[in-house]
C-alpha cells in the first residue's frame, strides 16, 4: 500500500489521507491494462474520500479519528456498490491504452527492468511447449525453400569446410566400411564409371604416373609368357622377306658382291664405259657446233634393262 495526504485550508480537519495500493510492475499488455484498471479504482476511491471530506466539512467538523474509522468503511461500501467491471470496461472503451502507454511509459526502461528481473530462457523452457510450437512451425514452413532463398549456402558451406577437418570427422565418426559396403551394394559402379568417367583421361593420367616398362620388368615373368607363345605363328606373321631385303640393303650386299666378284675388272669396265660416254658427248658437241645444231634427240623407245630388270623380277609370275 502507498499512503498520501491532501491538505486543505479551513476549520476542522483539513487533511485527507488516502491509501493507494501500488501494484506490482505490469507484465505485458494485460498487466498494463490491469494497472490502468487499478488506477481507475484508486481514482474512484479518492473521489469518494473527497466527497466524504467535503460532507464532513459541511455537516460537522469531524475529527481525524472519526474519519479514520468511517472512511474505510465507507470506501469499502462504495467499492462494493460500484460496478467496477462496467467502469473499467467503459474506461477501456474510451481510452486508447496503446497511445497512453506509448506516450506515458518509458517502455525501454520498463522492458529492460523486466528482462533484468526475469530469466526468459528458463521461463520459456518451463512455460512453453516448445515441441508443439516447433512442430507447428515446421509444418507451416518449407524450410528447404527458405534455406535456398535466404541463405548464402556457398558461403556457409565454404566457411564450414574451412573450419572443419572433414577427413578427421569422417574417419572418427563414420562407419566407413558399412557406408562403402551399402553404397557398393546399391550402385552399379560399372555403369557409373562408363557414363561419368572420362576413362581416356584417367588412363592417360595413370600411365603418365606409372613407369609401365619398369613395372612389367619387375612384375611380369616374360620368360614364362614367351614359353607359352606359339613361335611358328609369330614367325608366320613376321615379314621375313622384307627383313632379309632390309638386311641386304643395310649391309649393301650388291656392292659387296660387285666388289668381291667383279673387282678390278668391273671397275675398269665401268671406267672405260664412262670415258667412252664422255668422248661421245665431246664428239657430239664438236660436230653439233660445226653444223650449228643445238641439241640431239637421244630418247630411244622402250626402257633399258638396267632400269627395268628389277621390276621384271618382282612382277608376279603369269
Amino acid at each position: 500500500m502507498q499512503y498520501g495526504r491532501v491538505s486543505a485550508q479551513g476549520p476542522g480537519p483539513t487533511d485527507v489521507i488516502f491509501a493507494l495500493r501500488v501494484p506490482p510492475a505490469p507484465q505485458g499488455v494485460l498487466g498494463w491494462v490491469g494497472m490502468g484498471a487499478r488506477a481507475m479504482v484508486g481514482a474512484g476511491v479518492a473521489v469518494a474520500e473527497g466527497v466524504v471530506s467535503a460532507v464532513s466539512r459541511v455537516v460537522a467538523p469531524p475529527t481525524g479519528a472519526l474519519l479514520d474509522a468511517t472512511v474505510p468503511v465507507v470506501s469499502d461500501a462504495v467499492v462494493r456498490r460500484l460496478d467496477l467491471r462496467a467502469i473499467v470496461t467503459r474506461a477501456l472503451d474510451e481510452m486508447d491504452l496503446t497511445a497512453v502507454v506509448v506516450d506515458r511509459v518509458d517502455l525501454p526502461a520498463v522492458i529492460n527492468s523486466a528482462l533484468d528481473e526475469i530469466d526468459l530462457t528458463a521461463l520459456v523452457v518451463q512455460r512453453v511447449d516448445l515441441g508443439t510450437i516447433v512442430g507447428a512451425a515446421l509444418d507451416e514452413l518449407d524450410l528447404t525453400e527458405i534455406v535456398m532463398i535466404r541463405t548464402d549456402l556457398k558461403a556457409i558451406v565454404t566457411r564450414a569446410l574451412d573450419e572443419l577437418d572433414l577427413t578427421e570427422i569422417v574417419l572418427t565418426r563414420a562407419d566407413l566400411k558399412a557406408i562403402i559396403t551399402r553404397a557398393l551394394d546399391e550402385l552399379d559402379l560399372t555403369d557409373i564409371v562408363l557414363d561419368r568417367v572420362d576413362l581416356a583421361r584417367v588412363v592417360d593420367g595413370a600411365l603418365d604416373e606409372l613407369d609401365l616398362t619398369q613395372l612389367v620388368i619387375d612384375r611380369v615373368d616374360i620368360d614364362a609368357i614367351v614359353n607359352h607363345v606359339d613361335m611358328v605363328t609369330v614367325v608366320d606373321k613376321v615379314p621375313v622377306v622384307d627383313i632379309a631385303n632390309y638386311v641386304i640393303e643395310e649391309i649393301d650386299l650388291p656392292r659387296i658382291i660387285r666388289t668381291s666378284t667383279g673387282g678390278v675388272a668391273a671397275d675398269a669396265m665401268d671406267t672405260a664405259r664412262l670415258q667412252a660416254h664422255q668422248v661421245d658427248k665431246v664428239s657430239e658437241r664438236i660436230v653439233d657446233r660445226i653444223i650449228f645444231r643445238k641439241k640431239r634427240n637421244l630418247d630411244a623407245p622402250g626402257e633399258p634393262q638396267s632400269l627395268v630388270a628389277l621390276a621384271e623380277e618382282e612382277a608376279p609370275p603369269q
Partner: peptide
C-alpha cells in the same frame, strides 16, 4: 642404246 648390264639386281629377294 646405253644399257649397262645389271648383273646383281636380283640380289633383292622376290616377294
Amino acid at each position: 642404246i646405253y644399257d649397262w648390264a645389271v648383273e646383281i639386281a636380283a640380289v633383292r629377294l622376290p616377294a
